[in-house]
Design a protein around this nucleic acid. Structure first.
Length: 900
RNA sequence: GGGCGAUUGGCUCAGUCGGUUAGAGCGCGCGGUUCACAUCCGCGAGGUCACUGGUUCGAAUCCAGUAUCGCCCACCA
């Protein structure tokens, strides 16, 4: 076994071995799944097909792979289904940049050639991400890999849309949508990011119109606006109905500047009297509030923009101007004609596009909408009724709030890369929605032949096909075997920032289309931040490249760092310190294994399978580590079961490092090297050493799959072992628990405390660390004395003492001797060494006595409290009594010691 | 304007069902050429669990309020 662990070399080879063994698929050749057990299914959140692996992907992959590996080891049929998302806008933005370098553009290529180019591009990139996920150790079923633009997804999109259409949940209508000029498409409300910015609030005069229809140069109403270019689309001015200042204005008419349109002054209580002038210009086609107001008052709605963000034909002299240029010109022109009353800086929230960061323009457009309320009700019910559980629970509220206030979903996108909406128009204006791949044979209303029908140009919002993902990947709408067996999924693991985009939509579409919630548990993780708590971003320059980390310290270390100390739903910081810690842990495990493999007694055949020794040969240290192992197996298993992976990692870290390596390995080492010890005992020691290591490897495997596999392969195995730790059975604690004797384990534990006490005392007394001290031990229990005798010199060696005498009572020792006293629980040691400085030792004992007395006083006060004794559970009271007795004894002994 | 989260040693975080002795890693101090590992070993210091009040025999933990920071949602032009 090489002295240092070489992650990079090991990981690639191990992954190949897993692939060759065909153990990733639930029905793979090497799978040891028990078909009678309930399947464990995770459908992977599909990363963007053009993307590169970032830490977020690494975190998702790590958590899901860990859950999957744990489930696989419990013999459940385990499906982790991977895939890619076509990510229409994101992918188009990427491709647009690329073709721009080639001197082309969307317009120059045209739809067909653009899509051809996109398919070629996606062909090139789609393998990258999978390769990167494999480097992380992802044990996904690559044979079932899917793509949101593959034929199966396309079919699911068509069939689902037809179903929703037939169910009356789809409509095509004119509504105010969010238009992104930069992306040249509409986007959903979720994709509009409210950004606080300082804008300008202009005050503008609208002149009243006299009865003869001419504007009155001396009478006007002043309105406030932040977007003067929308003046061109104004169809009213509104004031509050109870606003005394404007009471007489209501019902009169004003002239809209530049377009010279005569519009009414209406009263509506949306108007805030305190804001601006208390009078609002109403632009129904470009503002949600105004749109509502216009509907209430039956006002016309005039769109003044075109798709490129320029003023359209409705803008009179401004037609053709870019929107912000138009704004500047209009402000200047208002000023010139004396109708600009003033302007001031104004703090406001600007809607910007999530993708392009361009300013979103609300516009009136005819598009496709999904009526979400009925679906939302089902999605809410699924969680309310406990059919789906959200972890951590606090996100239920977020989920409910959003679904309860949900608005219709604009699924139309004026893009090319995506699923085209399967709706056809006939010349008579009828709409036919069809789920047939070639489209409908004829107009569903008038029967006109297909040749006369024209398909909708719009494509679907990317998240529409993502919403179908939990079942489209399993073959829906067909009743495939996979769908029957693996739907609904077990856990949907994702970060909390896409609850609305994705989780809620999967729940809605899943409930509505399949009649079932798409998963049992929604497991929401937090985001990974840099060591200062900032979001990682390329512009901030604080990104950690997971692949660079893997190259340097290996996937196991990255995985462990991601999981260790994390809590579901909470953001976590990740930096070099954490990564180093994880790497060091792997190194520790590797070296421990190196020692174990090298320490096998010659009496034990090299290929003898791992087994626990006969009870008669089991020594005290073995009882101790086996009892610790039993506890760890139980606790770690529970932590995995309850999705508390951070805790599983912490438990393993502590058990392996602080118990197994720091103590047990040391105790085993010395006795194994002791040739005078009977072979049967040495063999037993090694067997326990190796057995516990093997169990810890299995427990750690889901988190650190590569290194545990590599080490496990080097341990001896029985012929019927599965050959890979990856498909080894999840350990249980019964063997260890049955063999370990609790009293002996406790006796050993007490002796370890004594060693710790001796080390501390000698350090405080300023003794040379290497010096051997003579010692007399007070070991009051027979069990402890027996354990000490059995461990022989190994324990003494850890404390660097030569034991002269062991007594059961401190009274048997010389009272006045100038010796260092060590107390550890009920055990004591007296150390002799010429140059010892006794003062610090005495000071420490006095401090301890003070402390013990204080605690005793508190303990006794508690017991004196009748209410406590009467009301606290008996076990707690008993515990308190025992504790008080212990403290009393400690005080007595400390007093005795200090008196001498 | 609503909602959520966080607040525990210098830093980053755990802390299950409320149980009295609040843990870890990093950092810090002291010491170490122990033949698995210096990516290491040993020892130690360091905490009024943000604050106020309440519930309880008992509160880091439950309740109410306050403060600070962060996030999400929301139509004052």
């Amino acid at each position: 076994m090489p002295p240092a662990y070489r992650a990079a070399e090991v990981e690639a080879a191990i992954y190949e071995r897993w692939l060759a063994a065909d153990v990733f698929a639930p029905d793979g050749r090497g799978s040891r799944a028990d078909p009678s057990k309930p399947p464990f299914v995770i459908i992977m959140p599909p990363p963007n097909v053009t993307g590169a692996l970032h830490l977020g992907h690494a975190a998702r992959t790590t958590v899901e792979d860990t859950l999957i590996r744990h489930a696989r080891m419990t013999r459940r049929p385990t499906l982790w289904l991977p895939g890619k998302d076509h990510a229409s806008i994101a992918a188009q933005l990427v491709l647009d940049r690329i073709i721009a370098e080639e001197g082309e553009s969307r317009a120059s290529l045209g739809r067909e050639r653009y899509l051809e180019r996109m398919y070629r591009f996606v062909e090139e990139t789609r393998g990258f991400m999978s390769g990167q996920l494999r480097r992380l150790g992802a044990s996904a079923d690559w044979g079932r890999e899917r793509f949101t633009m593959d034929a199966g997804s396309a079919r699911a999109v068509r069939v689902s849309f037809k179903r929703l259409w037939d169910d009356g949940l789809v409509y095509r209508g004119e509504a105010l949508i969010n238009w992104c000029v930069g992306c040249r498409t509409s986007v959903s409300d979720l994709e509009v990011i409210g950004t606080p910015e300082t804008g300008t609030l202009w005050t503008v005069r609208y002149h009243l119109v006299r009865d003869d229809g001419t504007p009155d140069p001396d009478a006007w109403i002043s309105v406030a606006t932040t977007r003067p270019e929308t003046i061109l689309g104004d169809t009213a001015v509104a004031v509050h109905p109870e606003d005394e200042r404007y009471r007489s204005f209501v019902g009169r008419r004003v002239l809209v500047p530049f377009v010279e349109r005569v519009v009414p002054i209406v009263a509506d209580d949306v108007v805030e009297r305190d804001f601006g002038t208390g009078a609002v210009k109403i632009t129904p086609a470009h503002d949600p509030n105004d749109h509502e107001t216009a509907r209430r008052h039956g006002l016309p709605m005039i769109d003044v923009l075109d798709d490129d963000g320029r003023i359209n034909d409705a803008g009179g002299a401004y037609t053709g101007l870019e929107r912000f240029e138009a704004r500047r010109r209009i402000v200047a022109d208002l000023e010139a004609r004396g109708d600009l009353e003033g302007s001031r800086p104004h703090e406001m929230v600007i809607g910007r596009c999530q993708r392009s960061d361009d300013v979103i323009e609300p516009r009136l457009k005819t598009q496709w909408f999904v009526r979400t309320r009925p679906m939302a009700a089902k999605a809410i019910a699924a969680v309310r009724e406990g059919r789906t559980r959200i972890v951590p629970r606090r996100f239920e509220k977020v989920y409910f709030d959003w679904l309860e206030n949900i608005r219709d979903w604009n699924v139309s996108r004026q893009l090319w890369w995506g699923h085209r909406i399967p709706a056809w128009y006939c010349p008579d204006g009828h709409i036919t929605v069809s789920d047939a791949e070639p489209g409908p044979d004829a107009c569903a209303t008038c029967g006109r032949p297909a040749a006369e029908l024209r398909q909708e140009e719009d494509i679907f919002d990317t998240w529409y096909s993502s919403g179908l993902w939990p079942f489209s990947t399993l073959g829906w709408p067909e009743h495939t075997d996979d769908l029957v067996r693996y739907y609904p999924g077990t856990v949907m693991e994702t970060a909390y920032d896409i609850i609305f985009f994705w989780v809620a939509r999967m729940m809605m579409l899943g409930e509505w289309l399949t009649g079932e919630a798409p998963f049992r548990t929604i497991f929401l993780a937090g985001l990974i931040r840099d060591p200062y708590g900032r979001k990682m971003s390329k512009t901030a320059g604080n990104v950690i490249d997971p692949l660079a980390v893997i190259d340097e310290i290996g996937a196991d270390a990255l995985r462990f760092a991601i999981v260790h100390g994390s809590t579901p739903g909470n953001d976590q910081r990740l930096g070099e310190a954490k990564l180093d810690g994880a790497r060091n842990f792997g190194n520790k495990l590797w070296n421990a294994a190196r020692f174990v493999l090298g320490a096998r007694p010659a009496e034990l055949a090299a290929d003898a399978p791992l087994a626990l020794p006969a009870a008669a040969d089991v020594g005290p240290a073995e009882h101790w580590i086996l009892s610790r192992a039993a506890v760890t197996i139980g606790e770690v298993s529970r932590a995995y079961d309850e999705l508390r992976l951070g805790e599983a990692a912490a438990l393993l870290y502590d058990s392996i490092w602080s118990e197994y390596c720091d103590w047990y390995l040391e105790l085993a080492k010395l006795r194994l090297a002791d040739e005078a010890r009977p072979a049967a005992q040495r063999v037993a020691i090694w067997q326990v050493l190796a057995w516990v290591l093997e169990r810890y490897l299995r427990l750690s495997h889901p988190l650190m799959p590569f290194i545990t596999e590599e080490i496990w392969q080097r341990l001896p195995h029985a012929p019927d072992d599965p050959g890979l730790v990856m498909v080894a059975d999840w350990p249980d604690a019964t063997d260890a628990a049955a063999l370990a004797d609790a009293d002996t384990a406790a006796a050993t534990s007490a002796l370890l405390e004594l060693v710790r006490g001796i080390r501390r005392t000698r350090q405080e007394a300023g003794l040379e660390p290497a010096a051997w001290l003579d010692a007399e031990l007070v070991l009051p229990d027979a069990a402890v004395a027996a354990a000490h005798a059995s461990l022989g010199g190994s324990l003494d060696r850890l404390a660097r003492v030569r034991v002269q005498r062991v007594v059961s009572d401190a009274a048997a020792l010389d009272a006045g001797a100038q010796r260092l006293a060590v107390m550890a629980g009920r055990l004591e040691a007296r150390l002799t060494r010429g140059a010892a400085d006794l003062a610090p030792e005495r000071a420490r004992l006095e401090g301890e006595l003070d402390d013990a007395r204080r605690q005793l006083a508190r303990a006794e006060a508690r017991l004196a409290d009748r209410a406590f004794v009467a009301k606290a559970p008996p076990a707690v009271v008993d515990g308190a009594r025992a504790r008080a007795a212990e403290l009393r004894e400690l005080v007595r002994r400390l007093e005795g010691r200090l008196a001498s």
